[in-house]
Design a protein around this nucleic acid. Structure first.
Lengths: 262, 262
DNA sequence: CCGTATTTGTGCGTATGTATC
DNA sequence: AGATACATACGCACAAATACG
């Protein structure tokens, strides 16, 4: 079955010595973006142009594009074009979410760790939050909690509001990475949440968010920390309810502990 | 987007369009891993087998594999085979590292945020660290600092030791996600570090690590927090040296602030 | 509203390099 | 060293989606 034959021909690649030798196609496309000072949203050359400029086949360019789009370095729109991506953390979301699905036990572990880290970041930034939250953003957060309560009364659930709430909380700190991480972790959490048994007390959850806002308004970072810890408590209970987790109250310092044992 | 006009079966695919239609090839391969209960390290079918089982072409399987390997969901070994991946956070490393390179100014912001989050996680887990660090791991960490000092004396640098140090610090908490995040952030940091001007005082950095260990040995979580903050201080100075950053000392509580203004 | 151009998506045959036995 | 199995790579033809005249 091996039709070995016709030596030359199929590829008239005279030499095609890859100028930027050693570098993979992925790296060379990255290099292209850097060299041309492209920013997120800027249009990329077409696959054909790239395959010509880089002197590789379009299949190769396409595979590189697949890798890059998985990392959100480029964004591909079918039948339209390719653009520089937003560099979000969607890749981590995919990876973590799939990791959780692989094994139920691992899922529990990952989720518990996830909650701990989320709480850790938020409590750790409590001082900055009370310091920098403006009345305007506080007002919009109040708005969100009102929407939560309304939906809770209708037994509806308020995932979108919850996500936006935590995102706003991080945004006031000015730390873009914290915002991205929070969004990513929230997404992972939401994906794995459906697989969890039981239900959350909607009204109680909404109240927990109000308590956070009250603490911010009172400019009491200690109170804010305990409010955040209390906010996560029911979620912990809903899952394996593992060890550790120095509950709330401690007030004074740290208190962002937990990190169940393995 | 209505109007779903009959796929039309362009190729000679008699019918194909089998069971899991609607799902992308990537999702169907994920599904395959889940359904067959494959664990990290387990071998995957060859691309030919997959393209047959999923009734799609090799190119499609190949591109899907590129996506999956970018997320570390599968791992391909040239000329050998494909295996289920370790689900690490390498994808996030790639994404964040590239983000840092995109723009010089933005680079500073990203790196500053990165340092803040790293410090946040470590100080936030200070209580758990002093509580759970065993004499054994403390000894291996001492070993690392000795190696640091030796290399510093030879003016050598000790990236590997530094990384391992911070990884051990997180490992004792039992939070696997924190370990992965720390490793990922460290990698991003190391990648972007080369682009920074100036040099670090090696001996001083090694001393900072010793101070961290001393605080752990003294079982003083407040001291540990300030030691961690001091450890990151020179790195902050080396970059833009932005605002915020409530330095150390505060001792009592929180103190993990910073998060420069934007 | 319809056609057409552009661009990405898909399929397939085949050639080449590489690792394992 | 040879054989085999596999991933890697190239090129082309066509399908599907989007934009624009």
């Amino acid at each position: 079955m091996p039709a070995k034959k016709l030596p030359a021909e199929h590829g008239l690649r005279t030499d095609a010595a890859p100028r930027s030798s050693g570098l993979s196609v992925v790296d060379r496309i990255k290099e292209y973006i850097l060299l041309n000072r492209l920013a997120p949203g800027d249009p990329m050359p077409t696959e054909n142009e790239l395959s010509e400029q880089l002197a590789v086949s379009r299949s190769r360019v396409r595979e590189a594009m697949k890798t890059l789009s998985a990392l959100d370095i480029v964004e591909v729109r079918h039948g339209y074009g390719t653009y520089v991506g937003r560099l979000s953390l969607t890749a981590m979301v995919e990876s973590l979410a799939f990791r959780g699905m692989l094994d139920a036990q691992d899922d529990q572990d990952v989720m518990a760790d996830l909650i701990d880290v989320r709480q850790l970041v938020e409590t750790g930034l409590a001082d900055v939050i009370v310091e920098r939250t403006t009345p305007e953003v506080l007002a919009s957060m109040r708005q969100l909690t009102r929407a939560m309560h309304e939906k809770a009364a209708r037994g509806e659930g308020f995932l979108a509001e919850d996500r936006e709430f935590h995102l706003l909380l991080m945004r006031v700190t000015g730390n873009a990475l914290a915002v991205q991480l929070t969004g990513a972790f929230w997404d992972v959490h939401a994906i794995a949440l459906g697989a969890l048994p039981g239900t959350t007390d909607l009204a109680q959850t909404a109240d927990a968010h109000v308590a956070v806002l009250d603490a911010i308004e009172a400019a009491d970072s200690g109170l804010l920390r305990t409010a955040i810890v209390r906010h996560y408590a029911p979620i912990r209970d809903r899952m394996g309810s593992r060890t550790g987790t120095g509950s709330g109250a401690g007030a004074n310092h740290g208190d962002a502990r937990s990190t169940h044992g393995k």
